[in-house]
C-alpha cells in the first residue's frame, strides 16, 4: 500500500553469489525487446546486448581463484543521469513517475554522445540494419517497436511490460499496479533467481530491504549518479575489487 502513496522508483538487486553466468537474462531480454541477432561481423564491442554478463575474476592462482558474473544492464541513474542531460534532442527520457531512464530511438540522431557519457557502457548503437532470419519476424514482440540502423538503444526495464500492466489495471478499474504485475524479462527468466526487481521507494519491498543490506553495493557509486541497480555478494574480495579505486584514491588524498 505504501507504494501507492509515493512515486515508485523501480530498481534491481542482483545477487552475484547466485548468478552462474548462464546468460539466460541476455537471451530473454533480446527476445522481449526485439533485439536482432548479431550481425556476422559484430563483436562484443559492436553487438547489442541490453543485458550482458561479464565475468570478473580475482586473478589469484588456484586454489584461491574466485570469479563472479556481473549481469550488466542500464544502471538507471536517478540523479544527474549522465546520458539524459547530454542528449541534444531529448531522445533520452527520465520518467519522473517511475525513475526509469528510457531511450526514444525514433527521436535519436545517432550522435552517440550519450554513449560516451555512460560510465557503464550500457548503451548500444545500431551499427548495422537490424535483420532477423527469415520467418523469425513472426516471433517479434508486438509490444516493442524495432529500431533502425544508426540510432542508440538500451535497457528500459522492459517498459513495454509496465505499459501492459498499467493497461490491464486500467481495464480492471485500478489506478495502480500491484508489484507482482510488473517484472522485466531478465529477472523473470533468471533460473537461479539472482535478479530481484521491485520498487526501491517502497521501504517494505524486498529490493528495498536487500539494497540496504551491508553486502549490497552499486557500481561507481562515488560518481553520485544514484544508480538504481544494486549488486550483492557475501564474498569480500568482490567488494574489495569493486571499491579498489575508491580506496586508493582516499589513501592518496590523505597522504597528499
Amino acid at each position: 500500500m505504501e507504494s501507492n502513496e509515493k512515486k515508485p522508483r523501480y530498481g534491481m538487486v542482483i545477487d552475484l553469489d547466485r548468478c552462474n553466468g548462464c546468460g539466460n537474462c541476455t537471451l530473454a531480454c533480446a527476445v522481449e525487446n526485439n533485439v536482432p541477432p548479431a550481425h556476422e561481423n559484430a563483436n562484443e564491442r559492436t553487438g547489442i546486448t541490453w543485458m550482458r554478463v561479464q565475468k570478473v575474476d580475482n586473478n589469484r592462482p588456484y586454489p584461491e581463484n574466485r570469479s563472479v558474473y556481473f549481469p550488466l544492464t542500464c544502471q538507471q541513474c536517478d540523479h544527474h543521469t549522465p546520458c539524459e542531460s547530454v542528449c541534444p534532442q531529448k531522445a533520452v527520457e527520465y520518467d519522473t513517475e517511475t525513475g526509469i531512464v528510457a531511450q526514444i530511438p525514433v527521436r535519436c540522431l545517432g550522435c552517440r554522445y550519450c554513449m560516451t557519457a555512460c560510465p557503464y557502457h550500457a548503451r548500444y548503437f545500431n551499427w548495422w540494419d537490424p535483420e532477423w532470419p527469415k520467418g523469425m519476424e513472426t516471433a517479434l514482440n508486438p509490444d516493442v517497436s524495432t529500431r533502425m540502423r544508426g540510432v542508440v538503444e538500451k535497457c528500459n526495464f522492459c517498459h513495454g511490460r509496465l505499459q501492459a500492466a498499467r493497461a490491464k489495471a486500467a481495464v480492471e478499474g485500478r489506478r495502480a499496479i500491484a508489484d507482482a504485475e510488473y517484472i522485466p524479462a531478465c529477472a523473470e527468466s533468471c533460473p537461479t533467481k539472482a535478479i530481484y526487481f521491485g520498487n526501491l521507494a517502497d521501504a517494505g519491498s524486498e529490493v528495498s530491504r536487500l539494497a540496504k543490506e551491508k553486502n549490497s553495493f552499486r557500481l561507481l557509486e562515488q560518481l553520485g549518479t544514484e544508480p538504481k541497480v544494486y549488486f550483492r555478494s557475501e564474498q569480500s574480495w568482490v567488494h574489495e575489487q569493486m571499491n579498489a579505486k575508491l580506496k586508493t584514491a582516499e589513501k592518496e588524498k590523505i597522504h597528499g
Binding site: 542528449c87 541534444p88 531529448k90 527521436r107 540522431l109 552517440r112 548503437f125 545500431n126 542508440v152
Partner: peptide, 17 residues
Amino acid sequence: VDVGQPLRAWFTFWHPN
C-alpha cells in the same frame, strides 16, 4: 557522416535539450 541518422539533424533544432 558521423551521426547515425544525418537526415534527423534538424531534430536538434526542433526538440533542443
